[in-house]
């Protein structure tokens, strides 16, 4: 009720303080801890594999005579029931899994950020966005994804769109709640008095303040998208003509060798685990390095 006192500096929210750490010589930067550079190194390896791997290796074919071989010098990750090299499959799968993860994550981020920021600043929009977000979050996503993919026909594009369009609610929630903190800052009022319109305030004042969160969201959503992609591919919703990690698992399951040829499921699963772990840690590390309160910890 009392409008005469506002909280002093100590309560300035994280997002608003983030900029104070912009100076280049700050301690506690992203790479100052192993979790920072290690996770990025892993991500870089995955990206390089995804981009250049398929150029250096032949597409896995079914002509091999080495069937169901355990990992060895000739076949690092062993071979499957058709004699296809699992390592080659994992390398080829990296490209599809990464693409689906990144593009789906970008779709989710664009939708999620736009709705989240709009809801944070525009009072009339907020109830609608909140309701839709809640409904989306309460839907059983996996059955829905299966249904839509089955109806649209399995392809990489379908996967990307389905995963992207169904993954934005978490982003919206995150961006909305943090955007509301920024929207309540007095400097937003200051911009309004100067005559700034809603679009200018959202894009020039609030968006930069929540940018660090968006970066984190991209990484976390990409990780979840990779898992979704693997799950859908494993359930046979992937593109049958392209390789992905989930498809390797599906093949293992289909051929009935899943119980005996452990290498056929272990290595694609490890790839998924490593990628998800690396991007999650990178996201968390980025968030920590931006927060002045946990800096240097």
């Amino acid at each position: 009720m009392s409008s005469t006192s506002t909280a002093p500096a100590p309560d300035v929210p994280l997002a608003a303080l983030a900029a104070t750490s912009l100076s280049p010589k700050r301690p506690g930067g992203f790479f100052s801890k192993p979790s920072g550079w290690l996770s990025v190194a892993v991500l870089v390896v995955f990206v390089l594999t995804g981009v250049f791997g398929p150029m250096l290796m032949e597409r896995p074919g079914g002509l091999g005579t080495d069937i169901l071989q355990a990992p060895s010098g000739a076949h690092w990750f062993g071979t499957d029931d058709l004699g296809q090299d699992v390592f080659t499959q994992v390398v080829w799968g990296t490209r599809i899994s990464l693409t689906v993860g990144v593009v789906a994550s970008l779709i989710a981020i664009v939708i999620g950020t736009a709705l989240g920021l709009g809801a944070a600043y525009l009072k009339w929009l907020d109830p609608f966005v909140t309701t839709i977000t809640d409904v989306m979050l309460s839907l059983p996503l996996l059955p829905l994804m299966i249904l839509v993919t089955a109806l649209a026909g399995p392809s990489v594009t379908t996967l990307v769109v389905v995963i992207g369009v169904l993954s934005w609610p978490e982003v919206t929630r995150l961006i909305r709640s943090n955007g509301m903190v920024v929207a309540a800052m007095p400097y937003i009022d200051g911009a309004r008095v100067l005559g700034a319109g809603a679009v200018r305030i959202i894009t020039r004042e609030i968006l930069p303040a929540v940018m660090p969160l968006i970066v984190v969201s991209v990484l976390l959503t990409a990780a979840r998208s990779v898992i979704s992609e693997a799950g859908l591919s494993f359930l046979g919703m992937g593109d049958p003509s392209s390789w992905s990690w989930g498809r390797i698992l599906l093949n293992a399951q289909r051929s009935g060798t899943i119980a005996t040829a452990w290498w056929q499921t272990l290595f694609p699963s490890l790839a998924i685990l490593l990628l998800v772990l690396a991007s999650t840690i990178a996201g968390v590390r980025y968030n920590d390095s931006r927060d002045p309160r946990t800096k240097g910890m």
Binding site: A16, Y187, A191, P208
Partner: peptide, 12 residues
């Protein structure tokens, strides 16, 4: 001119 000079200027 707003009250609190600490929060009335965009820190970025």
């Amino acid at each position: 001119v707003l009250q609190d000079p600490y929060t009335s200027l965009n820190p970025r």
